[in-house]
Every structure is written in structure tokens, then in C-alpha cells.
Write a protein that binds this DNA or RNA. Structure first.
Lengths: 253, 253
DNA sequence: AATTTAGTTGAACGTTCGTTGAAATTCAAC
DNA sequence: GTTGAATTTCAACGAACGTTCAACTAAATT
């Protein structure tokens, strides 16, 4: 019923994929890889994985179509390579900032929620608004993938959950009385608010009659942090677990 | 460079589309339409607009492939028909609930933010968890579309912005000192948190080690309302606009 | 200089894509 | 029961899809 030919089912990637670290250090191969990755990043972000063909990508990169398979095995491998390319740099800074926030509050008192959230979101919003244009595409792609039933639970987890766990652990220290499930759902809401921002669909521009601009990520950031910090506090305040029970019973009625 | 053959460029829909209200009232045609819409809703939700072919849909609906073009013009028309089918019922109840909340507080005092948010979100989460299974697919599709640069700003606006404007107006009454842009961005965050919930990607299940389940929308709802209410209040509190200026200057530094 | 290897090229594979035309069937009105 | 329109069927169109093959060039190794 559904199609089956997209992801490599037969010898996916063959066996002549260039070895990751050893080969390809020469200028020729590496430049080709990056051209393909740049084009894939931009086009996947615009129309999603299935809305863009391998030929669209290699055409935009001005390289032969066979080079996509040669360098990345198949289309899905290309998507994952796009994901991976910027993930390491991103996660490195996020963890460094988280560690700095925790170190600054070491021993003395719990860290401030706003600082933890900022450590988590600032590296993203800063790169999207002030980094090279590829970053904007990268985050728009993440927005789509995060909300995709097919890829969301797999790709996002694989590349970002380690740093998310560190983030949640920092929040746990900031709100030591918080119940576990409240913590995770509060993160979930933050994740949704953040990724919709990255999508930059232009909807808020229209809705607000031009008062808000999707692309003005600085405006978003200065509001996202207090918004989510207040949400975390509201969900995770002490004794909140007790009052929850009443609410649950009423809702189930 | 990019493909162009997907949306109807040549006589899109031809000129033998059955007239909307008059024909098709007979059982045969209407049943076919609904079978196609049901299948399209489910499959589009799973893999997105481009990830599903018209033949996937008509195959699942067990009808001839030509009937999709006959009833809906082309593939994009089918997507819009899926969107439209449930939008009216949804928006009707949301507006009725909003009006009820506003009427209950009429004249006396501003409505409670929690009540306004609940009027906006309850019809959605209730149908997704307790309605017919098609509703769950419908909202998962909305989650994908809302985060799509291609469709998000167009389809979401067309079908839902009228009721969103009523919602924002109710919040405006609940928080009369709020600055306009804060209001819209706060709605934006709510929209992102809500739609990521609908995607049900399973990521939170994995992340929380099974403590949270994506499908447990009642748990989500009882947390989403206080989370976002606190966020709205934090952004829209009186005199917040003044203190914002300082933050902006620091962030731009 | 000869040989191996990595990278690139152009063409082609079989399949699936969205859409359409014309014939066949079913239904409603008379 | 005949007529005319609405709906369904079957087959096909050309284009685009992801992937692969063998030939070829450029670089590295001997």
C-alpha cells in the first residue's frame, strides 16, 4: 500500500562509501560533500525530506547526482549527515554553558531557572539569527523533524537527548521539589515553543498584523525565557503534586 | 531545479468537480469522498504531504485512483479538504466555549486566563483522546503543517486564525495591561507547545524512561493550561514593557 | 614511470509519480 | 422504460523518482 522504494532496501549505500575520517581530507572530496550538505540542508528545510528529490539537491549543489549516493549511501544517510554536521558544535556549547551556570552556583544555592533555560536556548537562537545562513535552514529542518511522527522520536532523540538530559538535570536542581513527570512535560512544552519559533512560517506576522516578525529571534528569545521559566515554576512548585490529584479526578469525569 | 509537477498547474481540478452542496448527497458519492478523506488524513499525518502518494491513499481507501482527482481536483485540493472537514466543528465549539467564559465574567471582572486557555485547547485535546480515531490523525497532521515553512503560514492561517483572533482578544481582556507583541508571542509559544503534543512522536516517552506517555493527553492538558497561563502572566504583567527595554539592550550587546 | 586508489561522470535501470481520457455503470427525473 | 447527468472503472500518458553501473580523471603510492 505504502511505497517502499525510498530508503535503501538493497545494499543501502553499497560498500564503497568513503571511510569517514581517513579519506576525503583532500580538498576535492570534502568540498563536494559540503556543497551537497549545504543544498540538502536548505531544501529539506523548505519542503521536508519527501518534498525534495536527490536531483533537486545535487542540481542546486551543481554536482553529479551520483555523488550523493557515493558520499552518503542513500537519501536517508544524507539527511542524517545534515543533522549530524552541526549537532556536535551545538551540543558542545550548550553543555559548556550549562556547566558554567551550574559552576557559578556551585554549593551555594540552586541555579536560577532562567539561566538554565538560557544556556539551553541561547546557542540555538544566536546561531539562527547571527550565524551563517545555513544555521537558519538547519533549525527550520529541526522544527519539521521534531514534529514528525516518523522522524521526531528517532532523529531528535539520537542527536539531542544526551544534552537534553543534562538540561533536565540542571532544572531538577533548580526546582528540587519538582515531580519527575512535571519536569519532562514542562521540557516538552519548551521544546514545542522553541521549535515552532525556528520554523519561521510567517503565521505570527500575519496574525499580529505585522507587529511581530517571525525572523526577529531576539524578540522571541527575550520572551521565551521568562515565559518558560514561569511555566516551569507553575508546574513544579512545592506541593503541586497534591493539588494535581484533584484536577486529575475532575478532568477524567 | 525543484520539481514542479505536484500541484495542479494545468487545468487543476478540471471542470468536472462535483458541485459542493448539490450533488454528492446520494450515498454513493458521499461515502467515497469520506473513505478517501479518512485514508488521506491518516496517511498524510504519518508521512506528510509529499511522503504519501495519491495511490497510497486510494489504495488504502479501496477506491479507484482516478476518484481522488474527480472528487478533489488534485492532491493539494485533497489536503485542503482534509483540513476543512473537521475545522468547522472544531472552531464552532471553541468559539462557543470562549463566549461562555466571557459571558460568565461579563461586566464583573476580567475572565480568568486558565479558563480562556481551556476553552481554546479543551475541544482539541478532548477530541484527540476521546473522539473517533480520525481526530488523532487530524491533529497530528496539524502539528506537521503548523511547523512547515511551506504550508504553516498559509493553511493554518486560513482555517484557524479567525478563532485565534477571538482567543487573543479574550486574553487581552484577561490581561488588560499587556503589550500587544507580548500577547502574540505568548500565543505563539502556546501554539508550539500544543502542536508538538499532537505530533505524539514518542520522544518524551523515551526521554523520561517511560514516566510520560505521548498518548496520555489528559496528563498533558492538566499541565499545559497552568504552564501557559503562568507564561502569559509572566510576559504580560503590568510594567513589564518598561523592564523589557533594559533586557533588550543587554541582549543586543 | 607504473600501479593503485579515491573521486567523478554520464547514462541508464526499473519503478512510481500525479493526472487524464474515454468507456462503462449507476442513479434520479420524467 | 427512456433519457441525461453523476459517478466509477480501466488503461495509459509523460515526467520524475532513488539508485546503480561501467568508464573515466586525478591524486597518492610504489
Amino acid at each position: 500500500m505504502q511505497k517502499k522504494g525510498t530508503t535503501g532496501r538493497k545494499g543501502a549505500g553499497r560498500d564503497r562509501l568513503p571511510r569517514a575520517g581517513t579519506a576525503g581530507t583532500g580538498s576535492r572530496s570534502q568540498a563536494t560533500r559540503e556543497r551537497i550538505l549545504d543544498a540538502a540542508e536548505r531544501l529539506f528545510a523548505q519542503r521536508g525530506f519527501y518534498g525534495i528529490s536527490v536531483r533537486d539537491i545535487t542540481g542546486a549543489a551543481e554536482v553529479d547526482v551520483a555523488l550523493a549516493s557515493y558520499h552518503f549511501g542513500n537519501k536517508q544517510g544524507l539527511l542524517e549527515a545534515v543533522f549530524m554536521r552541526r549537532a556536535e558544535d551545538l551540543n558542545t556549547e550548550r553543555i559548556a554553558r550549562l556547566d558554567a551556570v551550574l559552576a557559578a552556583a556551585r554549593g551555594r544555592r540552586p541555579p536560577k531557572i532562567e539561566d538554565v533555560i538560557d544556556a539551553f536556548t541561547h546557542p540555538l537562537l544566536d546561531r539562527s539569527s547571527r550565524g551563517s545562513p545555513g544555521w537558519k535552514s538547519y533549525f527550520a529542518l529541526i522544527a519539521e523533524v521534531n514534529n514528525s511522527p516518523e522522524f521526531g522520536g528517532v532523529l531528535m532523540s539520537r542527536f539531542f537527548d544526551p544534552v537534553v538530559e543534562k538540561f533536565i538535570d540542571a532544572i531538577r536542581r533548580a526546582l528540587p521539589d519538582c515531580e519527575e513527570r512535571d519536569l519532562y512535560w514542562a521540557y516538552h512544552f519548551l521544546s514545542g515553543a522553541l521549535t515552532l519559533t525556528f520554523a519561521e512560517t510567517g503565521r505570527i506576522d500575519k496574525l499580529s498584523g505585522g507587529a511581530c516578525r517571525s525572523s526577529d529571534l531576539d524578540s522571541v528569545h527575550e520572551r521565551l525565557v521568562p515565559y518558560c521559566a514561569a511555566g516551569f515554576r507553575a508546574l513544579c512548585a512545592t506541593k503541586r503534586a497534591a493539588s494535581r490529584q484533584a484536577g486529575t479526578r475532575k478532568a477524567r469525569k
